[in-house]
Amino acid sequence: MRKEMLLPAAAVALLYLVLALLRQAGVIGIYWGQIVDLALITTIQAVGLSLIYGFAGQFSLGHAAFYGLGAYVAAFITRTQGGTPLTFALALLAGAAVAGIVALIIGLPILRLRSDYLGIATLGFGIIVKVMLDNADKLSPVLGGARGMAGIPRLTTFHWVFWLAVLTILIARNLVNSSHGRSCIAVREDEVAADIMGIDTTQFKTLAFVMGCAMAGLAGGLYAHLYSFLHPSSFDFLKSFDVLLVVVLGGLGSLTGTVVTSIGWVFLLEGLRDVLGQQFLDWRWVVYALILIAVMIARPQGLMGGKELSLDMLLRRRAARGGADHGAA
């Protein structure tokens, strides 16, 4: 492993150990443990949309539909094939793959066009998926249709969620910091100029869209096995808007911004539910709007404004501040 990777790798391992120990010892109970898991699942999903919208600049309103697709595919496999770790791994893979393949089928014709048709197409796709999930029991009774799908084995553990989140972030980071990633960003910045610089814009829009949707599918599979129950209403258009909000608030073109905001977002919602009680659900759209307005006034470029947070940067800033204090004294 390269030297500059050592510190972040150590930090991740430490974080894992601390969280795992806290849960083992019961300091983090079942309730908050599930919220940590959900926060990481949301992170996986949001990193996917961050690639699509934040980096490649393609506006998708159907992210929750891909999330739902992954959830139902994975749940169907473990329900019918049994809940062993192996079938679970295969189910997660299948969920991600199906979401990615469907994204490819939708994306190929639409992403050829130099316009914002993707937003409309994914919105339509989201509605179709919702209707299909509502009627899925006609396909197979296991899927449950509008009553929801029950009896999914609870296979999602902190270990799965944590390491898959790390893997997803790593893949996204490596993509973004490569020539392929620069091509995606160039497409976002100016599609005509990217084309004229020799970049096959359709290819990179498709790449970001397929990878981002596969990540949503993976997150969906984990979600399905977290609560053991799925309902079509968890994957409607409003849920797509949730993720979009996270990506925008984190700052377009910032992976760390997306990660921090995803986790903060889930905890904020839970916190608000704690404070305001269940009636909060009725008010959440008002709260969303207020948060959005507040952030857009305070930091219109989002939390990170296209920049990345790094351990290096934090340490250097501490050092600089320490030095300044010294000088003042």
């Binding site: 020539s179 910045e189 610089m197």
Partner: peptide, 23 residues
């Protein structure tokens, strides 16, 4: 002028090298 405005000056130039990035 149609630069990739949010990208660094260096990355603007490197973006145009993609077709021969070789990996």
């Amino acid at each position: 002028i149609r630069l990739f405005r949010e990208m660094s000056v260096l990355h603007n130039v490197m973006a145009a090298m993609h077709p021969r990035c070789g990996y």
